[in-house]
Amino acid sequence: MNSPLSSIILFQIGPVPITQAVLITWGIMAVLVIGSALLTRHLALVPDKRQAMIELIVTTMDTQIRETTGTEPAPYRSFIGTLFLFILVANWSSLIPGLEPPTSKLETDAALAVLVFVSVVWFGVRGAGVGGYLRSFAAPNVAMIPLNMLESITRVFSMFVRLFGNVMSGVFVIGIVASLAGLLVPIPLMALDLLTGLVQAYIFAVLAMVFISATVEDGQPDPAPSLQKKVP
């Protein structure tokens, strides 16, 4: 049995090894880009079914972001929404026989976690300035600076391991069960895997949003948001 922790290198472009996960990611990207290009081709003032569906997706995303952060969703919509859509499609790509979800590989999840870390810095600096971003480490007081710095690393590591563990374990368990009894038996596990994939994608997006908004709020010079945060 192959180790779930190792990746299969298909071929190399120069010094760059192209793994199966990267290839599948490209496929997912192509599907998403072409699909969205086709879906948003004719946006009319009066929506038809197709437009109503994609508008429902966008509106739901906006609602979630607004409920999580309490601010306007426009700056975060693209990043958080794409994160959610990509993880969801990647998780569910295990339904296609022969494909392994890219998110069941360490590299992809690590890359996503790194992106979240970078985006926290990016949005923190953009929303509150460099000083504001650095000040956000001193919330709620100066003594918390080492802990906050450590937390900013560990929380993305936690996200990374959570996503990887969940998706990988689902794939792994289904692989084991399928090797024992290939017919019909893995179906409930696959259904559970679908649910897990959806919930993990949601959790990943929401956690990224929470981290970003917490950093932006803590970085604000006005102490009012942090005071408000303490109330509940």
Binding site: W26, L32, T40, L43, L45, V58, S78, F79, G81, A111
Partner: peptide, 28 residues
């Protein structure tokens, strides 16, 4: 290498979807 590739992939996807999906629909 894979980590970097995937990060770049996802960034490109974020950019493309932002151009192709999120902004047009939100604008609509």
């Amino acid at each position: 290498w894979g980590l970097g590739l995937q990060a770049v992939n996802v960034l490109i996807l974020v950019w493309l979807l932002s151009r192709l999906f999120w902004r047009p629909v939100a604008a609509a």
